[in-house]
Simulated scan of single mutants.
Amino acid sequence: MPGVLFERLIRPALYRAGRSDPELVHERTMAVLQRAGRHPRVVAAVSRAFAVRSPVTVFGVRFANRVGLAAGMDKDGLALPMWPALGFGFVEVGTVTRHAQPGNPRPRLFSLPRSRAVLNRMGFNNAGADALAQRLAATGDLPVPLGVSIGKSKITELDDAVSDYQHSLRALYPYADYFAINVSSPNTPGLRRLQDRSALSELLGALQSLSAELAGDRPKTPLLVKVAPDLTDEALAELLEVADEHQVAGLIATNTTLSREGLHPDEQHLGRQSGGLSGRPLTARSLEVVRFIAKQTGGTVPIIGVGGISTPDDALRMIDAGASLVQLYTAFIYSGPSLVRHMARALAHG
């Protein structure tokens, strides 16, 4: 299937979010991609149009290129064969929780096209870690690395968070090339308290211990921590100390923000909705956080930069700031798979 034809089929569902319910558009798009992924000839044709091979090794994992799909787009791994075909050099599914959960009541996803942003309070809606494990077992190996973002179930008390994360890690360990430990979503009550020193230290210690047990004689699967953009420099520095103590493989910077700076005047009213903001308004802050992490760690800790990366130049600036890889979500919604291809090529030659 030629790339232009594919874009004409997908774009009507994917890029008119401002004209209808954005979550319904997302669901329909995922259904299209899921069906397309069942047909090897379609996957191969799309891959010829969009895939970029520019391998790079980070934290011991070989990535097809530096541009990945961020968590949140395909929480339950429904369309896994299609993401590499669309040009992504790696894919992160989730955030997934131990218990299946419906997430927060609708409406919970808001498109802000003039701001090139999305506001969400999804609340980790997913089918659960065990269901994802079954799907990954049935899907088999992907041509690119697979990351799995894990978080705390809403029904689990904060004091029991460690066992919640451990269950997901254990269930999904055979399938992940790395794990993202999500302690920074603003949409699960109390979750961001897990970024505090004592709570994070307990969590990372338990997960690293379990990872060593599950790995046996093989190298441990890398664990990364996803951080919030709303942390102060002092809080972020403390988090980095804990991450270093527990030898995390890297950081993902950043999650969505509670800030409403940078919204277009016509969309300020949507900013009054609760939830996390992603997209262009986050560009400057995510870059600041990546630069801060790189400076604090002396460039020794790999960083996946995410948040407001909307153009190839944004991606290049993120790499210059200290990131080794980048991820897209909101920009992909607005710009489509051509952006992935152009960005991966720019980073290959930048």
Rank of each mutant, 00 (worst) to 15 (best):
M1W: 05
L9F: 13
A13M: 10
R16E: 00
R19H: 01
E23S: 14
L24R: 10
A36C: 12
H39T: 05
P40F: 03
P40A: 12
A45L: 05
S47R: 15
F50S: 07
A51C: 10
S54H: 14
S54P: 12
P55G: 09
N65S: 04
G77V: 07
L80I: 09
L80A: 08
L80C: 10
P81M: 08
M82G: 10
V91G: 15
V91F: 13
E92G: 00
T97G: 09
T97M: 10
A100P: 12
Q101Y: 09
F110R: 05
S115K: 13
A117Y: 04
A117N: 01
N120T: 02
R121V: 09
A127E: 14
G128D: 04
A129I: 02
A129F: 10
R135T: 02
V144P: 06
I155C: 05
T156E: 05
T156H: 03
S163Q: 12
R170I: 02
Y173T: 04
P174H: 08
S184P: 04
D196I: 06
D196E: 14
E202S: 11
G205I: 06
A206L: 07
E213Y: 00
L214D: 13
A215E: 13
D217W: 02
R218V: 14
T221I: 11
V225H: 14
T232V: 00
A237P: 00
L239N: 00
L240I: 06
V242Q: 04
D244T: 06
E245A: 14
E245W: 12
Q247Y: 01
G250Q: 03
T254L: 07
T257H: 11
L258M: 12
L258F: 04
E261D: 14
G262L: 06
H264F: 03
S274K: 08
G279H: 03
P281S: 03
A284H: 13
S286G: 12
F292G: 02
T300A: 01
I303Y: 06
S310R: 09
D313Q: 15
D314I: 07
G322E: 09
S324W: 00
L325Q: 03
Q327E: 15
L339C: 12
L339G: 11
R345K: 15
A348W: 00
